[in-house]
Amino acid sequence: MQTAGRIKPPMTADNGWWWEQAAQQVLAIQRCTSCETLRHPPRPMCNRCRSLQWDFIAASGRGTLASYTVLEHPQFPGYQYPIAIALVELEEGERITAQLVGIEPDDITFGMPLQVSFQADPDGFVLPVFEPAEEN
């Protein structure tokens, strides 16, 4: 899946910090510092208490497969197909969407345990992916 051609996220005040953590191999989950509610994807305000103050926790990287799809067509330059995409239920309770690697599409099953890993593209861009994990 390594590629330098993927569409990179724009880095703004609302999301750039998350990718900076990913570059350090940290799977970050944003946390409201006022009420401690976790949220993902990141946004500037807590929808529980309206606080604009936040920090983040480093997720364990463990989770289970909530849903998935396998992208086959159309195929875009900058990506290698087929691409399995996982919706991961993290053990902290938040969900995250990311690529699923290290498994044939036919072997993927709902609920399977997953573990994050970090892959670097040839141009140095680092992004979290998930792979099958041993049962806990």
Partner: peptide
């Protein structure tokens, strides 16, 4: 733009790819 970027980065670029998950 930020919203879509969480998906584009992995190659989820089409309505079909997003709808398929649900």
């Amino acid at each position: 733009l930020i919203h879509w970027s969480w998906y584009q980065v992995y190659g989820m670029l089409t309505p079909a790819s997003w709808v398929a998950m649900i």
